[in-house]
Design a protein around this nucleic acid. Structure first.
Lengths: 150, 150
DNA sequence: TTCTTTGCAAATCGTTTGCAGCATG
DNA sequence: CATGCTGCAAACGATTTGCAAAGAA
């Protein structure tokens, strides 16, 4: 999934119709490496499409996910995240601020087996839970503070 | 986290109090390799504790998760699953029936890096999405049926 | 006694659904 | 013109929260 044009063609090939809303949703998604939620994308599109419904964003993203054009995963923060990058990689999920970023190469770049025993593998989600630099620093500061109080 | 006794000691060491409910919840969890949800565990405990509240199960599990005694992850079916097995392994998640099973060795047994760049890694969740043997067979049957109809 | 846990009821909130009107192919 | 898409409002459902009573240390 490189360009928007490429994606539009594939959607059309599946019998989907390209509305102005979907064209912009796809474009926004492809240019977003922050693993946005439907609400995040919706907010980002409000300036361009003030009447865009959140329902429409969900519908567009879920259709793409079912078509295998993007990955849809829950990171443990109670929301669903979407990632147009289906290449093998891992996500770094901060357990404190819930921010998500791609792990830099070569972490998580395991080759995906076609089958594991009798199980047919289609996709993988690898989440590394931990503390991002900012939150780790804040956590250290708090520990120091607690020691001072005791 | 091998035995229930071991776990009870660690909980007590953290200042937690061991109620009959929690003792049974812990025991049921440790003996469960199906990555149960809070509701599944609650249902399983109803015969033993008819008055057990779902709220209590959630509280017990979340406390353990925060203490790092179990893994808490969303598999994409809209529910939260708990797994007492923190050793490196992957989960096979059927996208159709949503059943979850551990991948057999050696899949997913990657060593966990302590840090990835500036990011401090604490735990990993690796999900292999696909079709379990039963659902794969059913899917093939349906495809054959569709071809027959066409 | 002190602090945690229990469990009921009610609230929360991200996501889905029903449906009528509209636009694409 | 047939079908898929939009978007509003309402439904949904898993999880969380408030709080008073009960129980562990």
């Amino acid at each position: 999934m490189r360009s928007v044009q490429e994606l539009l063609e594939r959607v059309r090939a599946r019998g989907g119709k390209i509305t102005p809303q979907r064209a912009l949703i796809y474009q926004a998604l492809l240019g977003d490496t922050t693993h946005p939620t439907a609400e995040a994308l919706h907010a980002r599109l409000m300036p361009a499409l003030p009447h865009l419904s959140l329902t429409t964003v969900y519908a567009a993203l879920n259709d793409l996910a079912e078509a295998g054009e993007l990955r849809r995963f829950a990171a443990g923060d109670g929301q669903i995240h979407y990632d147009p990058d289906c290449s093998p990689h891992a996500e770094l999920v901060c357990v404190r601020c819930h921010r998500i970023q791609d792990a830099p190469a070569p972490f998580g770049q395991h080759t995906l087996p076609e089958r594991v025993g009798e199980f047919l593998v289609l996709a993988r989600t690898e989440l590394l839970h931990g503390l991002c630099p900012a939150c780790a620093a804040r956590a250290e500061g708090e520990e120091a503070g607690e020691r001072a109080n005791a």
